[in-house]
Nucleic acid binder design. Structure first.
Length: 317
DNA sequence: CGAATTTGACCGGT
DNA sequence: ACCGGTCAAATTCG
């Protein structure tokens, strides 16, 4: 049969994808065993994956542990009203269920992602690279797609989607994080602490951690110097180096202020782990402890921070 | 000039 | 067929 260019393109794309996937998987397998030689495991990776690090020079000296974020399905934006938030939560439940049924099949190496939605300013402390923008039906504003800048270097596939708030407050953005990465300074808080760019009102900052208290400590101001490469644009700029991973540390954590007007959080770990949310009043963090079922695929929980109620849904399976 | 962003096309899921 | 997510060539930026 005659082969069209379109088919050829598709074919080569598949090949490329396959290569990428294979490379990642290979790296993942290779890295999990050696298990962070000498590095503080902080064993916060419950069910999350260490990142591959390419066999570049950088990878030999550092152990960039980005966790893999599967390209999970999209999530909905967050309405301001509590009632709407609850509705969103419901939708997210369904969403997650679908993800759990499907996405693992698509990318065998991918665990279920940590996923967090937050309504906050667009900027956080990670270094992201925009890879797409899409007009979303019934949305005023386009959705912007970002992935971790270190994806290619370290295989960190954390991604986020940013969408401007519908109307009331244009300065707010709905940020949806997929997966978790360690290339940012906030340790394993897959969904990074949102740093307000204007530092005005700091209402309530909610930190979601999938890791140990150590990690949380880092997130809550412990400022662990876990990352040898810059995790924000400014870091990169100031360093003057061209290779991100070779840049100086990013220990200097800017004040973590945020205008988190509302957060709706949903997260899950494939290996049925506990997600810790620990409070750190000093920094205006509000964290909750929320324990999830052992079932490897249970809906884990929802937190409607509007009312600070926790939805823990264990769908027996 | 290299890196980051833009943007239309492509692809898979529903 | 529609929609959302991703890719990648082209363009812009520093």
């Amino acid at each position: 049969m005659a082969r069209t260019t379109a088919e050829s393109n598709a074919a080569s794309r598949h090949v490329a994808k396959g290569r990428k996937a294979a490379a990642r998987l290979h790296a993942l397998l290779g890295q999990q065993l050696p298990a962070a030689a000498g590095s503080p495991p902080s064993s916060t990776l419950h069910g999350l994956w260490s990142s591959p690090s390419r066999s570049s020079a950088a990878s030999t000296e550092r152990s960039p542990r980005c966790t893999v974020a599967p390209p999970a399905r999209r999530t909905t934006s967050l309405p301001a009203a509590a009632g709407n938030a609850n509705r969103s939560a419901a939708r997210l439940v369904l969403e997650l269920q679908r993800v759990r049924r499907g996405s693992v099949l698509n990318e065998s190496f991918n665990p279920i992602p940590c996923r967090v939605e937050k309504k906050a300013t667009m900027h956080d402390s990670y270094l992201w690279r925009k890879y797409g923008q899409k007009e979303i039906k019934n949305s005023k504003h386009p959705r912007l797609y970002y992935r971790c800048s270190y994806r290619d270097d370290h295989g960190c596939t954390a991604t986020k989607q940013v969408q401007q708030s519908e109307d009331d407050d244009p300065s707010l953005f709905v940020v949806t994080y997929f997966g978790e990465h360690f290339c940012g300074r906030v340790a394993d808080v897959g969904c990074p602490v949102v740093a307000g760019d204007d530092g005005e009102e700091s209402e309530e900052l909610i930190v979601i951690s999938f890791g140990s208290s150590a990690a949380v400590a880092a997130a809550t101001g412990g400022a662990s110097a876990a990352y040898p490469w810059p995790c924000c644009r400014e870091d990169a700029k100031n360093s003057g180096a061209s290779q991100p991973w070779s840049l100086p540390d990013c220990e200097e954590v800017p004040p973590l202020t945020a205008n988190v007007a509302e957060e709706l959080i949903e997260e899950s770990t494939p290996e049925s782990e506990l997600m810790g949310l620990i409070s750190s009043p000093d920094l205006e963090y509000s964290l909750l402890d929320l324990e999830l079922g052992e079932s490897s695929l249970g809906i884990d929980g929802f937190i409607n921070f509007d009312e600070l109620s926790v939805y823990s849904i264990d769908n027996a399976r």
